[in-house]
């Protein structure tokens, strides 16, 4: 206890130095990210829902792709960024890294939920089943539980730094699931079809359908940027409130 108290002023300085710079950057980036999101979302939705052609096999049901696929991309991207941040948090004790992971987890969980729900709505008419336990679907469900576990662990301890540490370890351990999700459709027989866009020999989607898909991908990325900044701002403010209350109670 004595050691911790002696470290407190230094730790507080360290904690404040970076967030101040981050907040300035965040305030500069946020409006641009918001504008990019709105433009790409508008264009992507218009093209995806109305202006793009129906698929030769799947008909109009293919439009579900324009939310399903970007959500699935983001589910993997957000988890990967959380794993990278957790690595930085554990090795270099970077004060913003834990903050990022905590802010990103609920957004990643949201994207994963969207991918699962829209996939189910697409699977019923096309495959003939709402759900199957093939390796792609199962590994994405595991990803969803990893996100929920991360959120639960972050908030499970009275002392926030211990929760952040446990969650960072979970994020790194769970990262093995990311290549499994990505390559499950190549490694094993699955009902889910292989990748259409992120593949070595180039996309197998007609340009008229690839454009709305990419626009929605940019829109979802912009959305993530906006919301993760908002959540980090909320968390930085929450820590300030805690620190101010602590100093008031102590003084």
């Amino acid at each position: 206890m004595g050691l911790k108290d002696r470290n407190r002023p230094a730790a507080t300085m360290h904690r404040y130095a970076n967030p101040a710079r981050f907040l300035r950057l965040a305030r500069a980036v946020q409006p641009w990210a918001a504008v990019l999101t709105i433009i790409c979302l508008g264009a992507g939705l218009y093209l995806g829902l109305f202006a793009s052609p129906a698929d030769y096999q799947q008909g109009e049901s293919v439009r579900i792709m324009y939310v399903h696929v970007p959500a699935a991309w983001m589910a993997l991207f957000v988890y990967t960024s959380m794993a990278a941040a957790s690595f930085a948090a554990l090795v270099w004790k970077h004060p913003l890294a834990d903050l990022f992971a905590k802010a990103a987890a609920p957004i990643g969980a949201g994207f994963t939920l969207i991918a699962l729900a829209t996939g189910s709505l697409w699977g019923k008419p096309m495959w003939g089943a709402w759900w199957v336990w093939d390796s792609r679907l199962t590994s994405v469900l595991v990803l969803f539980f990893l996100y929920l576990g991360h959120i639960a662990l972050t908030n499970a301890f009275d002392e926030p730094t211990r929760g952040a540490r446990a969650a960072a370890i979970l994020a790194l351990v769970g990262f093995v699931n990311v290549p499994i999700i990505k390559f499950s459709v190549d490694w094993w027989n699955t009902l889910h079809q292989p990748s259409s866009v992120l593949r070595l020999d180039g996309p197998t989607i007609d340009p008229s359908m690839l454009w709305p898909l990419l626009l929605m991908g940019v829109a979802f990325t912009g959305y993530f940027l906006c919301v993760v900044i908002l959540r980090m701002r909320a968390e930085i403010a929450a820590r300030r409130i805690r620190a101010l209350r602590y100093s008031r109670a102590a003084g």
């Binding site: 439009r63 579900i64 399903h68 709505l121 697409w122 008419p125």
Partner: peptide, 9 residues
């Protein structure tokens, strides 16, 4: 199927 998918998202 299409509209509920967009609505959930």
């Amino acid at each position: 199927y299409v509209w509920p998918a967009f609505a959930i998202a």
